[in-house]
Design a protein around this nucleic acid. Structure first.
Lengths: 259, 259
DNA sequence: CCTCCTGACTAGTCAAGACAACTTATAGGC
DNA sequence: GCCTATAAGTTGTCTTGACTAGTCAGGAGG
């Protein structure tokens, strides 16, 4: 694993582990660059690169004249963990579950075709799943895929395993996504599946995922029970979060494509 | 401005401007490092440092063998813009407005004292304001400050100008914040002020802001009309957002202090 | 006309060294 | 005991040089 990766990445991994396992305690000073160089037997470049990575994720702060300090902070979730409900649940130590409500193939509406960058009336695959945490309903997920991609999913066992893992096996790898977070009242389907009162507030996340080449892989509409999940952002003066607050009158633009 | 800052920062600023002004068009290749070195008359280090900064903010992508490409992406909002309703509205080209509902001094409850890192029964200042965008209600903001800080706000003209600007004038500068985003049903006060039906879904953002020394400056509970605002996150495999999804049974921990 | 291969170019990685700016602890003076 | 000046140590910044691994266009061959 760490053998073929670049030196600075190995150093980074080693440092992350030391922080996580408490070898470097929160509030402590990190060893000086000089001692790290001596320990790892490298030059200053890779060491500084690894430290810069830690800093960019907020795990260490300060510096300039004195070694930086370890900061205990909610670790940023990896792209995969953030995208995949299954991986997220495992990360939390909870049992992910799912029940397919609907899996269908249908012609796209004009709006959906545009979101998926498809010609009008193209076929899309829609999958609606109830997601569970430790057997309790947590989220209702409505995903839309272009037919080329979605057809790989219909024969798969959607009740077990992650859609993303299935997609990866067939060579579809999302690498970029845009999430729009807001609140919405529960509709009849959510009332039925999530066991909430009609009109109850739900946390909605609409997602547009792209692969390497910039083509849209998925558009989704996830509705979370606020009693089961929340989103956290950590923000610093130095470190901008790739997060912004948008006026809703421009929400239509939010799903415009960049490239 | 750019005279005393380090070289790589100057290069970064210049490159950002070129992207914003369209000298470097989205989709275009960035000039090669060699040509940038020749143009700016520096060595490779600062040039690469500036490019790395652009990359970390998602403004350029790719590389390794070919010059990176300019990516048109929703620019991450600066810490100030993200914190301050006033600056955010101005950024959108809309007119920010506000009406103070309540500004009071009171003993803290146990829970609030803990959040603000104060001894039990310490005095806190609570300010509740209705926030407007172009004269339309958009958000109800409930902020709590330690008395030492809040007392500077009570005599201020809270109906005009930003709280953060006022705080900065008296030397209180937040540099780090944690935001927890979820959904909640409208309560009587929101029904009255935001003109929504009882139980209507609102987007809630709870915020804990720290200053340089790590002491809590503010804790707040903002409730947005989902028809007026949403949050956007852009996520990449390479670039982790400092954002995570959390199970709500751990929500009590979310406001635990780090340091 | 298409495919494949080669070579020029590019960015990623690493090393070693030098100086500037800053922090911290120590030693000295009051 | 307290404050201040100093010195040592640390990180930030920049340079130069080298090698590796990837991209891309153009030419040879089918």
């Amino acid at each position: 694993m760490t053998e073929n990766s670049p030196l600075h990445a190995q150093l980074y991994a080693e440092m992350v582990q030391r922080i996580r396992t408490g070898v470097w305690q929160p509030g402590d000073r990190v060893p000086s660059e000089k001692s790290l160089i001596a320990e790892f037997g490298t030059s200053r470049g890779p060491v500084r690169q690894a430290l810069a990575a830690l800093r960019s994720e907020g795990m260490i702060v300060g510096g300039r004249g004195a070694p930086p300090r370890v900061q205990r902070t909610a670790p940023a979730q990896s792209f995969d963990t953030f995208m995949s409900f299954t991986e997220w649940a495992r990360d939390l130590g909870m049992a992910p579950g799912q029940r397919v409500i609907e899996a269908s193939r249908r012609p796209a509406t004009e709006e959906i075709a545009q979101e998926l960058q498809l010609p009008p009336d193209a076929t899309v695959v829609e999958i609606i799943r109830l997601r569970l945490l430790d057997d309790k309903p947590a989220m209702l997920e409505r995903s839309l895929f272009p037919h080329e991609i979605g057809k790989q999913l219909l024969p798969a066992d959607l009740d077990n395993g992650s859609i993303y893992q299935t997609l990866r096996r067939v060579g579809v790898v999302p690498v970029r996504a845009r999430h729009v977070i807001d609140a919405i009242a529960a509709h009849p389907l959510e009332v039925e599946q999530l066991h909430v009162a009609p009109g109850a507030p739900l946390l909605r996340v609409r997602r547009l995922a792209y692969d390497e080449s910039g083509t849209v892989v998925e558009t989704a509409d996830d509705r979370y029970l606020p009693s089961m999940a929340a989103f956290i952002v950590e923000n610093t003066v130095e470190r901008r979060a790739p997060l912004s607050r948008q006026a809703a009158n421009t929400t239509a633009d939010l799903f415009e494509h960049d490239d």
